[in-house]
Write a protein that binds this DNA or RNA. Structure first.
Length: 693
RNA sequence: GGGCUCAUAGCUCAGUUGGUUAGAGCGUUACAUUGACAUUGUAAAGGUCAGAGGUUCGACUCCUCUUGGGCCCACCA
């Protein structure tokens, strides 16, 4: 053995060895208790980022359970990541001077397909570099025909059960990305705007009421002015009308208790075509409105036609000012809805979309949570989940992009009626398929059962519900919540028993990594520099489950040093090896130090096993680290090196073997390499997890 | 506006159900080392555990408040 451990000469070779031996398949323990984890499928198109490296937690669990004798399955996959991928693709397209509108649907889809297929191996190889013991013979892609078929069936079932409807609603539309989004894709950003106080004159009797708005350009689309019924200032306005300051149309004054009396003048212009709250108030009052702004972000008609909303705002304000219709202008800081991807303002627009009625789906999910059928670790995040489920709103699943699963809904060209199928076109009549695709999360929400139902016969029966769903807490609502709902809906069973959530990995200074800030650390560079084992160990060591951490170099260095320390313990053992000794540990060694170390190993095994069972990964890692380095190496080896004999050697080797096994889930490569170098057996992967008396 | 979370050594953070001298890594200082390992060892310096109350025989750990960060949710137009 060399003086220094070389991960570069070891890791790829070991991974290949494992794969060839078939050790990643649950079939290595055919009689074991089934244990399963579905890997959150990374975006097929993009390289892994540091968040993906946190899936090491899943590998730790899988390797631990496999060594315990379970029939452990860790199922890999890739996500087509609809909008995300099309966004990246379009960015690339832009560089060549083209846009998506230069191609027809099929061509564009084919182009993105090829783009994704050529990038997909990158991500998969990176998962291998990290040492993940995934069963590659079962890998799935969200656009596999059998997966698509399941997604179709789910949609049809939801539709037949009245849980999917086509609604003409105000949706979150990004005019820059050209698609609508669900509420989760909309984020709020603090913005300073002007609050215009506009005079609306009464139709009769003179006088005016002042209405505060940040969006004067939408005045044209006003359908009413609303005040709070409790507002004493406006008591006498019942039955009165005002005149639209731009169009001079008559607008009724309505009373709605959701109007905030404290804000502005307490009078709110109602523009159902552009504001969600207005839309709701209008619905309650049987008023209908229209969107004045088109999908291109420009005013569709009238005097301001062709102007972008922002330009129109200034022009309208100017015109109103000229006519003396603006009472005053104030500065206001408010939370503006923006697109999570491009950060541009979301324009609420009225359009027809497919919605999933969520309340009936959320109820069983909440019950499963309350009954403890599904447990969340760390516990505090359960509240985030239950709050989301309790306040759930209908889910817009239509996306105006081509990259994804096209919605199997067909419109009759004559009648305009819709038919939902399991993918096939309806016969008879003239039908046109919806051009929209599903929100990516609609297919991912079905991932646990969709994968297991399409891998190998009996996989679903054997491995569903899965044992653990491990992912970042940032997609708790986007993904985990929806998986629970869809799993319960489609299979009648929870999709997983335990939800284990890891924190975010930030840059070395603790700031969020982002491409625009240019502070992204590539996990594969760390693997290259320090080894996958070091990366894995560092990510677990010293960070409580669900807490964020900084990807700081000293941590990786320390973990690398620890790997080297382990390596040199093995060298010591190899150099002091006592051949032909029977390697039997006496039940009660005479030497007190030998006796102590045996007891300490026993306690360590107990502690680490318990910590793993409780998802206290950092405790487990810290304990083995502390023991291996500062107890076993610093004290025991120092003591035994002066007096080594066949009895003490047996204690030395067996204690070390226990450490190797406890460490294997965390640092799989080096523990395997040492195990083989010391001729302890074929592979540490098929060793049994140590047990403590 | 609501919720969650953090504030512990110079820096980055552990501290698991409250219990004797509060820990790790990095950094700093001194010494050692051709002998498993300098990707090492031994030792040392360094903390009023944000602040103020309270519960308790006992609190970094539980409760309340204050201050200062971070994150998430939310239709003040």
């Amino acid at each position: 053995m060399d003086k220094i451990y070389s991960h570069k000469e070891t890791e790829d070779r070991i991974y290949k060895f494992w794969e060839e031996k078939g050790f990643f398949k649950p079939e290595v323990n055919p009689k074991g208790k089934p244990y399963s984890i579905i890997l959150p499928p990374p975006n097929a198109n993009a390289p892994l980022h540091f968040g993906h490296a946190m899936y090491v937690i899943e590998d730790i669990l899988i390797r631990y359970r496999r060594m315990k004798g379970d029939s452990a399955l860790w199922l890999p996959g890739a996500d087509h990541a609809g909008f995300e991928t099309q966004f990246v693709f379009e960015k690339n397209l832009q560089k060549t001077g083209k846009s998506r509108f230069d191609y027809d649907r099929d061509t564009l889809y084919k182009m993105i397909w090829d783009f994704v297929q050529s990038n997909r191996p990158i991500m998969e190889n990176q998962l291998k570099k990290l040492g993940f013991s995934l069963d590659w013979s079962r890998k799935k892609f969200t656009l596999d025909p059998d997966i698509i078929s399941i997604v179709y069936k789910t949609f049809k079932k939801l539709h037949d059960d009245g849980l999917v409807y086509r609604g003409y609603r105000l949706v979150n539309y990004c005019t820059f990305d050209g698609t609508s989004f669900s509420d989760l894709e909309v984020i709020h950003k603090e913005k300073e705007s002007s609050l215009y106080f506009v005079k609306y004159f009464f139709e009769k009797g003179g006088g005016n009421i002042s209405v505060a708005t940040t969006r004067p350009e939408t005045i044209i689309a006003d359908v009413a002015v609303a005040v709070n019924p409790k507002d004493k200032r406006y008591k006498d306005l019942k039955g009165k009308n005002v005149i639209n300051p731009i169009t001079n149309e008559r607008l009724p004054i309505i009373f709605d208790s959701s109007v905030d009396m404290e804000f502005g003048t307490g009078a709110l212009k109602i523009t159902p075509g552009h504001d969600p709250k207005d839309f709701e108030i209008a619905q309650r009052n049987n008023l209908k409105g229209e969107s004045l702004i088109g999908f291109d972000g420009k005013i569709k008609e009238g005097k301001y036609k062709g102007l972008y909303a922002k330009q129109a705002r200034e022009k309208v304000a100017e015109d109103l000012e000229k006519e003396g219709l603006i009472e005053k202008i104030e500065k206001i800081i408010h939370q503006a809805p923006v697109c999570y991807k491009c950060q541009n303002i979301i324009e609420p627009l009225l359009m027809e979309q497919w919605f999933v009625k969520m309340e009936p789906l959320a109820k069983p999910a909440m019950e499963a949570l309350k009954k403890g059928e599904i447990k969340i670790s760390p516990k505090r995040l359960e509240k985030v989940l239950s709050d989301f489920l309790e306040n759930i709103r209908d889910w817009n699943i239509s996306r105006q992009i081509v990259w994804g699963i096209r919605i199997p809904a067909f419109k009759n060209k004559k009648t305009g009626g819709w038919v939902v199928t399991e993918g096939e076109a309806p016969t008879g009549g003239d039908w046109e398929q919806d051009t929209d695709t599903f929100d990516t999360w609609f297919s991912s929400s079905q991932w646990p059962f969709a994968t297991l139902q399409t891998t190998k016969p009996d996989d679903f029966e054997r491995f569903y519900p899965t044992d653990v769903m491990e992912t970042g807490y940032d997609i708790l609502r986007w993904w985990v919540a929806r998986m629970i709902m869809m799993g319960l809906y489609k299979t009648g069973k929870i999709p997983f028993r335990d939800v284990v959530l890891h924190g975010m990995v930030n840059d070395p200074k603790g700031l969020k990594m982002s491409k625009s800030k240019g502070n992204v650390v590539d996990p594969l560079e760390i693997v290259n520099e320090y080894g996958a084992d070091a990366l894995r160990f560092a990510l677990i060591f010293g960070t409580g489950l669900g807490n964020d951490q900084a990807a700081s170099l000293p941590k990786f260095q320390n973990a690398r040093n620890f790997a080297n320390k382990l390596w040199n313990m093995a060298r010591f053992i190899e150099m002091n090896r006592i051949q032909n000794s029977k390697l039997k540990i006496q039940n009660s060694p005479k030497n007190k130090v030998d006796k102590d170390i045996i007891n300490k190993v026993q306690n360590l095994v107990k502690d680490v096993t318990k910590d793993l069972d409780n998802y206290n990964f950092n405790f487990a890692a810290e304990k083995v680290y502390e023991f291996a380095w500062h107890e076993f190496a610093d004290k025991y080896i120092e003591d035994v090196k002066k007096r080594i004999d066949s009895n003490s050697y047996a204690v030395l080797e067996s204690s070390y073997l226990a450490i190797l096994k406890l460490l294997h889930p965390f640092m799989p490569f080096i523990t395997e390499e040492i195990y083989q170098k010391l001729n302890l057996g074929e592979s540490i992967m098929v060793e049994k997890w140590p047990s403590a008396k």
